[in-house]
Structures are given as structure tokens and as C-alpha cells.
């Protein structure tokens, strides 16, 4: 049995398309591994209790709070951070562009997490209602905007991504 135990675990992550094999200490968070080992500083620490959503990334296409995800438990995983959203030419993803155009951020600290949550939403739901947006972004706090411009940004992104969508609000 003892041979099962180790102070670290070998994990394989594909982060924003790039492969990383890492030996991570037990107890460390995915947030720390992303920021400190892989240099993905766009993923932020806000509360370390899973409430604020500033640390949100995608694990296998689904949003997760990296500050309450233990890195060792991700034996193999595909991670998308905010830094992985640009297209090959470095152009902004339509969601990023809409957030920029609609002032969907001020200090920007929560923005990466919110953009990724919006991405998960609009991937499956091309016509989100206001309530759908509220549900999808319920895991994130923003202290600057009062959420008005965020909601507008997500709706606008849908219109741009799915042009048949003109009538949503």
C-alpha cells in the first residue's frame, strides 16, 4: 500500500493547447500551478474559498474554480485559460471583443473568469435569455460594473457569434 503514497503526483495537462507534464505537490491548487509553474497570470486569486470566480478556468471544456481544484487530482486534463481564447492570428475572441466594446469590465480582475463562463454558456446556448446569463455567471463576483455592462457584453457576443440572433436582449 505504501507504494501508492507520494508527496507529489505526476499530472499531464494540455494548457491552452500546450502540453505540460508536471510533478505537483499534494495540496497545491490548480491556480498556483497555472500561475507559478506555467506562467498563466491571467488567472487570478480573489478569495481562495470558491466564492468570487476570479480564478475560473475551463477543465475539459467546463468552467471550474482553479483555487479550489487540487492540481494533483487532474491526472490528465485539458485546461483553457483566458490566454487561450485568442485566435491563431492573435485576434480577440468575439466574447472578448464584446466585453471590450461594451465596457464589460473596469479593473478587469474578474473579467477572465466571467469571459470563460460566458464562453461555456454560449457554446451550448446560442440564444441565452437574461436569466440564462445570470445563471451562467452566478459563480462570479464583479465589484466595479454593477453587472449591467457584463450582461450587455454577453448578449452582444451572441449577436456577433450567431448573427441570426438579432432579437435577444
Amino acid at each position: 500500500m505504501e507504494d501508492l503514497l507520494d508527496t507529489s503526483a505526476l499530472i499531464q495537462l494540455r494548457v491552452d493547447g500546450e502540453f505540460h507534464e508536471l510533478d505537483v505537490l499534494a495540496g497545491r491548487t490548480l491556480l498556483d500551478v497555472l500561475r507559478d509553474d506555467i506562467g498563466k497570470k491571467g488567472t487570478h486569486l480573489g478569495c481562495k474559498t470558491g466564492h468570487c470566480g476570479a480564478c475560473t478556468v475551463m477543465i475539459d471544456g467546463k468552467v471550474a474554480k482553479s483555487c479550489i481544484t487540487m492540481a494533483a487530482t487532474l491526472a490528465r486534463a485539458e485546461i483553457t485559460t483566458i490566454e487561450g481564447l485568442l485566435d491563431e492570428k492573435g485576434g480577440l475572441h468575439p466574447i472578448q471583443q464584446s466585453f471590450w466594446d461594451e465596457a464589460g469590465l473596469q479593473c478587469g480582475y474578474c473579467a477572465p473568469g466571467i469571459v470563460l463562463s460566458a464562453l461555456e454558456l454560449v457554446t451550448d446556448n446560442h440564444h441565452p435569455s437574461a436569466e440564462d446569463i445570470e445563471l451562467a455567471l452566478a459563480g462570479s463576483l464583479c465589484r466595479c460594473t454593477g453587472y449591467q455592462s457584463i450582461k450587455r457584453s454577453v448578449a452582444e457576443a451572441c449577436v456577433r457569434m450567431y448573427p441570426a440572433n438579432e432579437n435577444i436582449n
Partner: peptide, 8 residues
């Protein structure tokens, strides 16, 4: 506002 949106 662009830099935070791309994590930079």
C-alpha cells in the same frame, strides 16, 4: 481594458 481581457 484589452490587456485584462486576454489575461495579460
Amino acid at each position: 481594458a484589452r490587456a485584462p481581457l486576454i489575461g495579460k
